[in-house]
Amino acid sequence: MPTDPPEPDSNAPIFVVLNVGSGSDDANATRATIERVLSEAGRKHELTVVDEPARLHDIARNVVGRARARGGIVVAAGGDGTINAVAQAVLGSGCAFGVLPQGTFNYFSRTHGLPATTEEGTRLLLTAEAQPVQVGLVNDRVFLVNASLGLYPKLLEDREAYKQQYGRSRLVALWSGVMTLLRGHRRLRLHLEQDGDLQACELRTSTLFIGNNRLQLEQIGIREAPLLEQGRLAAIALRPVGRLEMLWLLLRGAFGQLGDADKVSSFPFARITVQPALRGRAGRRIKVATDGEIAWLATPLVFRVAPQPLWLLKPEPQ
């Protein structure tokens, strides 16, 4: 697999995948801004609008194929889920990758210092150089921010339902999380095998959360956050607790103190294998969330750092 950074010339065409279902901005205004900035710069470009989320992955693969044939740059315009889908297609293609954030939290773009506005972000694409970004994998499915199983995917599903009813905002996301925790949750028994160690350990938890985003981990107070820059991911497990204790952990996370809680354990790793601790479960499917998107994946689950990076167009480090 290619490990050298792509070196598109200053006239490389830009292929934008715009998900009109992401974020709260007006999709027509976003599209007009992207096309205006690129046209004023005299840059060849192709903008593909996704109005059917179910087709996002197929469209992303098609766009990456066209960009690769022409030595182009692939850009994802949307929230973390859209960025994830396009990154899945870009990884290993040899194409440089750009991001125009349109989501609610935008952890990926904020971590890498990408502009929050569409106009500034589009202008950055014209001058930025590709820099390596670590990618997480679960059964070869990409995650740039986090992956999880157990309670957290349920939180995401409920959050999406609340957003459709009350709108997209961080306050709505927080409120939906509180309501989900108050309804109770199922506990998991998992066998974990870490970094090739054949002696598995058993873990009882309500949720297993795998972090690949330093900003998110720092915000909730996980001490392993700096290790993401050393080729590691961070695993976080919540020991079984009652509803009130779970709400207390939620508050600790909001104040950046989750990592110090007695009911929370965390550790860094490069690779772990996770298997539900029930006989006959191998090969069965389990619900997993990757960057806010829910999927059913076959067990065992293998979480690891991808052998090649994503080459992201972003500002030079300060």
Rank of each mutant, 00 (worst) to 15 (best):
V17L: 12
G72C: 12
E7L: 08
L18V: 05
F97E: 09
S24A: 15
A85N: 12
A60C: 11
T82N: 12
V50T: 11
E52R: 13
V74E: 10
A54K: 08
P101E: 06
H57N: 15
G92F: 02
G21I: 03
V90T: 05
Y107C: 03
S93K: 07
A69D: 09
V90P: 11
G78K: 15
A54N: 09
N62I: 01
R31C: 03
A29W: 00
N84I: 14
A29C: 03
A27G: 06
R31A: 02
D80T: 09
D9N: 15
Q88F: 10
G65K: 11
N19E: 08
L47S: 01
A32T: 00
G92V: 02
R43N: 07
E7V: 12
T48F: 11
R55H: 05
A85D: 09
R43A: 07
A12L: 02
A76F: 10
V63K: 02
R31Y: 00
G103M: 07
R110F: 03
A32C: 00
A69F: 09
P13F: 03
A89T: 08
G21K: 14
L38P: 05
T111N: 15
K44N: 13
A69N: 13
V74T: 13
L56D: 01
G81I: 10
N19F: 09
R110C: 00
C95T: 05
I59Q: 02
R110V: 03
V99L: 02
V20Q: 11
P5K: 11
F108K: 13
P8I: 08
S39T: 14
T104G: 10
N84E: 14
L91M: 01
I34N: 00
P2F: 13
D4P: 07
V63Q: 00
A87R: 12
E7K: 15
R36I: 00
C95P: 10
V49F: 01
V16P: 07
A41V: 11
G42K: 11
A32M: 01
R68I: 05
V37W: 04
L38I: 01
S39W: 04
G42N: 06
C95D: 12
H57F: 13
P8R: 11
A67K: 13
R66M: 09
A67D: 05
L18E: 02
Y107A: 08
I73C: 07
G21C: 13
A96L: 00
R70W: 06
G98C: 03
N62R: 02
N106L: 02
L91T: 05
R66F: 04
L38D: 12
V90S: 03
P2I: 12
L91S: 02
V17K: 13
V99A: 05
D26L: 01
G72V: 12
P6F: 12
V16S: 04
